[in-house]
Amino acid sequence: MTNIAVLTAYVIVLSLYVNLGIALYGIFARPSLVKKLIAITILSDTANAFAVLVGYRWPRNALPKPPVIPELPVTRRVLEEYTSSAVDPLPQALVLTAIVIGLAITLFIAFIIIQYYRLYGTVDVRKVRRI
């Protein structure tokens, strides 16, 4: 592998770290609860992207393949080719359920924000502190 490839891989990882930092800033420092919810979705998406990135691979003398067996019947040659070039399926399986559960949790937080607005008449945490 060339040096440029290693450097670009670090650029990708670093930009995901920066996204993590931006999302944390949104959660800690922005006053609106809706903005905090947007920041939480960015944070969880970035964590999921990390998990998938860690499961990626670049096999020797071949191209990486998605974890799906491409042909039937499955012979020993097909299976060997598959195991030597497919990417890691485990992070993908975990992230897949995490995204759907994350949507359900996001919906629940959205309901809580609406309820908050009904009770306090604002979604700005600074104003609520003054009340």
């Binding site: 990626y56 670049w58 020797r60 195991t83 990417v87 890691d88």
Partner: peptide
């Protein structure tokens, strides 16, 4: 980054 091989458990799942 990116790695050449998958972990052992991933190899078992694929296999």
């Amino acid at each position: 980054l990116p790695p050449v091989d998958v972990r052992d458990i991933a190899y078992q799942y694929l296999n």
